[in-house]
Design a protein around this nucleic acid. Structure first.
Lengths: 227, 227
DNA sequence: TTTTGCATACCAACTGGTTGGTATGTTGTC
DNA sequence: GACAACATACCAACCAGTTGGTATGCAAAA
């Protein structure tokens, strides 16, 4: 028993002191899910894990979510909303030139990626990789999150192509999706090698790719260091 | 009971007819592991799944592997050996020009990727993504597999840089790892969107990137369709 | 203003089935 | 007959999900 000198330890349950305020359970569970999916993946994360981390009981969990699968879908949607808000208010939209906006986006992502692994890793990418073949509902929610984010980039890329042309026969959609692929792939290398720098490197290559694609036509350095 | 008119159904175990030959259990378990990890990931794959798919009993499983974690490590090492052999005898080593070999490698991978999802997907990439934070032994085995494969590319890339120079300040190692990142990221998009073409597209972008990096100096088309 | 009725938000204990793993047999091979 | 390669039977812990209940808020009736 690691119980302290508290009066009534409520055997098996939560201590009064650490019990969160009413009305926060759903949010706390979703926060816990984000952390746990990044730490151990969807399948290895148990409902008990979730409840312990969130500081709620199983009753609360199944009050807010019909099943673990339902939580998975909600976590993906929650992630889509969170990242949607983050990128919407991010500073990379400022430049007037569309190509500059795209390059600013890539640099913004590189800065995000430079942090510790559990904090920059993509929740929906991790989940999709794991459950794509076994839980269609979660997979589709992850797909929506990834592809919706890619679409927010597409407009800027299209504008850049319209303005400057492009040195290869790719369209904006394909390039936007490739951007996401590179970032997701960087995560995998970073996780396997336990080094965020591996992800950063790939994002640097991505920036270089864009510069080369638009070189000569736009005013960007054709081959400089991605800085 | 769905048992037919067989004489002795061997209650709880395997029927005589489908019992594989002695001495094949380990191989069959590793084959089953490859398939199951791709289908549902490492965590969701149970030892019973493994045994059922391999057509062996739990006794056989724990005779060959001390634990499920041990099997995970073995699966990663088995994957490294399988892919090692596959790429070693692949035709992309033929060209005399190192840059041509690199481009041939990329095209070879694109062709691999064009098949159905459960057949081209990377076992160690999937596993690493999932268990990187929870099972270090498996994560390290996955890392070894990925990085060893990247190293087989590195020599050709280095030779290409030495021969032609490169339009950006990247070294061979970084480029080789980026290659793996793009392919791994393509897998994630393909899984999320349920469309192998998504992975193919990213590999096409990768080929284009290499062509642009070496354009003007080597004899490759600077911006042509990756064909 | 109080009370009644009802919905929401949550909790502790429990359940049936599953899980990784073990203990102990049996069979084929050198 | 010794040893490897299996098979069978079993277990304790754990799993997602359920049950029956309590605390709280809110709106309408009294």
């Amino acid at each position: 028993m690691t119980q302290g000198s508290t009066g009534n330890p409520a055997p098996g349950g939560l201590e009064e002191a650490q019990r969160p305020a009413r009305g926060q359970a759903r949010t706390r569970i979703l926060d816990a899910a984000r952390a746990l999916i990044r730490e151990k993946g969807y399948s290895a994360m148990t409902v008990d894990d979730l409840c312990a981390r969130a500081g709620v009981t199983k009753g609360a969990f199944f009050h807010h979510f019909r099943s673990k699968e339902d939580l998975g879908v909600a976590a993906a949607q929650d992630w889509a909303q969170m990242t949607g808000a983050l990128f919407e208010q991010a500073p990379y939209h400022a430049p007037e030139d569309p190509l500059e906006r795209v390059l600013a986006y890539i640099r913004f992502r590189r800065d995000l990626v430079a942090g510790p692994i559990p904090e920059f890793t993509c929740v929906v990418g991790t989940m999709a990789q794991e459950i794509h073949g076994s839980i269609p509902a979660i997979r589709d929610a992850c797909r929506d999150s990834i592809f919706a984010h890619a679409e927010t980039l597409e407009a800027d890329i299209r504008a850049a192509i319209d303005k400057y042309g492009i040195r290869a026969p790719f369209d904006a959609k394909s390039l936007a999706l490739h951007t996401q692929a590179v970032i997701q792939g960087g995560f995998i290398l970073a996780k396997a090698g336990q080094d965020p720098a591996l992800a950063v490197q790939s994002v640097d290559h991505l920036e270089c790719y864009f510069k080369l694609l638009f070189a000569d036509s736009a005013g960007v350095q054709p081959a400089g260091v991605p800085a």
